[in-house]
Design a binder for these strands. Structure first.
Length: 296
DNA sequence: CCCGGCGCCTGAGGGC
DNA sequence: TGCCCTCAGGCGCCGG
């Protein structure tokens, strides 16, 4: 599930390939994957533009293009944005078939191609592919001067890894809230970029029970929570993200933070710290994993 | 304002 | 073997 560390990894792995490249041709196989403007208009705007800079805000990838346009991508649950090298001949746009190191058999190729929704042919022997099994992600394009006002982006909370994200800001966002801390962490309006996996890992690291309310946290707990947010997200980036279901980076490689998970998807297994059995509860429609002894 | 619940999607996995 | 059900979840939206 692409959260801040995964989107940041995609940004870092795509940038060296995309910067300076020009979009020669865009193929859209699933028009509804384009939001806020129709697919033809999207295609028309994108074609001929060059990639200048790749940024990130929360879970949104922001590709600034020439002539004052910005391509915005949200990966949703299972979105993948992958750069493929190689001779365009190997990649048949019309028939959606191609050759690549990781996708060799005809079966896995067909499986993969079924969910390729957008292909951008770039000018230096490469393709940028948008692949998304569950189709919760989307792409859009808007004038660069307007991109921070886009729905979804305009109301985002502070960037947790920014230098100016201080303890006081976290406290201000959470300390008057009666909601459960796990759900507050998932609320993109309060802090940007945290999803279900990192929320559970952050709370375990901070020793805070997911059902605690924001207004019940002591100063000491806020300090631990603040430190945990920074250290866990940073670690996620260092390990190139968490590959549990579909996530891969901009070159198609998996991350390795899944090997560091202490509670997420570890129901019934012993806590690495105290050997208590990890529990799972339902919270706002999704699972929350925690150690009943380490998290108070 | 805030909370819970639903819909969007597909594939994996369990029960029978 | 195969069908049907449930679950996974980011996020916008709606209703109370």
């Amino acid at each position: 599930m692409p959260e801040l560390p995964e989107v940041e990894t995609v940004r870092r792995t795509l940038a060296p390939h995309l910067i300076g490249q020009r979009v020669m041709e865009v193929k859209i196989f699933l028009p509804k994957i384009v939001r806020y403007l129709n697919a033809e208009k999207f295609n028309e705007i994108l074609t001929g533009k060059s990639f200048l800079e790749i940024n990130r805000r929360g879970k949104y990838l922001l590709c600034h293009l020439s002539e004052g346009w910005t391509l915005v991508v949200h990966l949703g649950m299972s979105g993948q944005l992958i750069y493929f090298f190689g001779d365009p001949i190997e990649f048949d746009l019309e028939n959606r078939s191609f050759s690549h190191r990781d996708i060799e058999s005809e079966l896995s190729k067909a499986k993969f191609m079924r969910h390729v929704h957008v292909i951008m042919q770039l000018d230096k022997q490469g393709f940028l592919i948008y692949h998304d099994i569950r189709r919760f992600g989307y792409l859009t394009v808007c004038p660069t001067v307007e991109h921070l006002s886009l729905k979804g982006i305009r109301d985002l909370g502070p960037e947790p890894l920014d230098d100016n994200f201080k303890l006081d800001i976290l406290k201000r966002q959470f300390k008057t809230r009666k909601g459960k801390i796990k759900q507050l962490l998932l609320d993109q309006h309060l802090v940007a970029g945290i999803g279900n996996i990192y929320a559970d890992e952050i709370l375990f690291n901070a020793g805070i029970h997911p059902l605690r309310t924001g207004d019940s946290l002591t100063l000491k707990e806020f300090k631990r929570l603040y430190a945990a947010i920074r250290v866990i997200l940073q670690k996620g980036i260092e390990l190139n993200g968490t590959s549990i279901s579909d996530y891969v980076d901009g070159e198609g490689w998996p991350g390795s933070f899944q090997e560091e998970l202490k509670v997420y998807q570890r129901e019934g297994k012993p806590c690495c710290n105290c050997s208590s059995i990890i529990e799972r509860i339902k919270l706002g429609g999704r699972s929350a994993y925690f150690c009943p002894l380490c998290q108070k």
